[in-house]
């Protein structure tokens, strides 16, 4: 690999010549713009960047990036990206997925990629609906969701993607939303910088099949009261007047409450780096029912052994112990005899 400086680029360099074909008004446009604008700042090369996706609206993303890219099959992107990242540790591998792709058909691959800590950056666009198949409820839809496939309401309890990722002991988990470009970029920048598997859930509006799903928390007028900004080392406070805080309960859970002079000292100070995932999990449960104040930011950022690196190290170790592989000795490794 070349060691010359990464060329200076602009958003244009990272945009492919393909016409973008999401519905007008789709939240995916703002995520695409955020990513294309961020790429020149990440210090990576276009030729060493790969976007891998599965199936769904979000999965069209790689076609619009002027990098290497592969649009694969439903739910399998994390598994394909795992093979790619293992075979090519020199690459920057991004996985673009949606709530159906990552959490329903591909749930198994997602949790295993996260627990292995393979070096990939997963962006999970969560719009709480199946868009490409025209509006069935998804694994993140609220219970009772009325859709074409659930005319009298859905029965499933939804997954919270952050809870699931933290439960799989992902080493980097964050949440952001499509209405705040700067925050999206900051989360993606940090996810990319993280060594290992990182997951960023992006609340994304589907204006055709599930419009305004996050309006109650992400709109400009509601953000102050409804978004809980997680900042490492700072007390977790929120509200229009910063009048609320997050407190830890004796049972390990967390709760929101009005901050008073009596309890101010007990407001939970956010620590992304706690090894044990329990606290990050508790924070993710604050949104257990809909339209509750919702944490945004980095829930968990811990360092752990990266999978691909370990796999490469085993090869180096075996090569130094046994010498480089030699076919002639391999063929005799189970014994042999000579016929004159």
């Amino acid at each position: 690999m070349t060691t010359t400086a990464v060329p200076v680029t602009t958003r244009k360099d990272w945009s492919s010549d393909q016409e973008v074909r999401w519905c007008p008004g789709c939240g995916d446009y703002s995520i695409l713009a955020a990513v294309q604008m961020l790429m020149p700042d990440l210090g990576v090369r276009r030729e060493s960047t790969v976007f891998v996706s599965g199936i769904g609206c979000a999965a069209r993303f790689p076609y619009y990036m002027n990098t290497y890219g592969v649009h694969t099959i439903h739910g399998r992107a994390p598994a394909i990206a795992t093979g790619l990242a293992m075979a090519r540790p020199d690459l920057d591998v991004f996985v673009i997925s949606g709530d159906g792709d990552a959490l329903s058909i591909g749930g198994n691959h997602l949790i295993h990629a996260l627990r292995r800590n393979i070096n990939i950056t997963i962006l999970l666009f969560n719009n709480r609906i199946y868009g490409l198949t025209k509006g069935q409820y998804s694994p993140t839809s609220e219970r009772g969701k009325v859709t074409k496939s659930t005319p009298v309401g859905s029965l499933d309890r939804p997954f919270d993607p952050v809870s699931l990722a933290v439960g799989a002991e992902a080493t980097f988990v964050a949440r952001t939303h499509d209405m705040d470009r700067a925050h999206m970029q900051e989360m993606i920048r940090r996810a990319h910088a993280h060594r290992g598997a990182s997951l960023v859930e992006v609340y994304q509006n589907c204006n055709v099949f599930n419009d305004a799903a996050f309006e109650g928390i992400t709109s400009k007028e509601n953000r102050g009261a409804m978004l809980i900004q997680l900042r490492h080392g700072e007390a977790i406070r929120f509200g229009a007047e910063n009048e609320f805080g997050v407190f830890r309960l004796p049972d390990g859970g967390v709760v929101t409450d009005r901050v008073t002079s009596d309890n101010e000292a007990h407001v939970l100070v956010h620590n992304e780096h706690v090894e044990d995932p329990s606290l990050a999990f508790s924070l993710s449960r604050l949104t257990i029912s809909d339209h509750e104040p919702t944490p945004m930011g980095v829930f968990r950022d811990v360092s752990s052994v990266e999978y691909g690196e370990s796999a490469s190290a085993q090869i180096v170790q075996q090569q130094s112990e046994k010498g480089l592989g030699d076919l002639a000795s391999l063929f005799r490794s189970n014994g042999s005899w000579t016929v004159k």
Binding site: A79, T82, L84, M86, I315, G325
Partner: peptide
Amino acid sequence: KEFGVRTFQAEDEIAGIASAIGASYG
């Protein structure tokens, strides 16, 4: 592994072939 062989015991049969496709892509 002395031949540079990477073996990946995947989470299921699908991930087995999917990871192999990813490696070939690479």
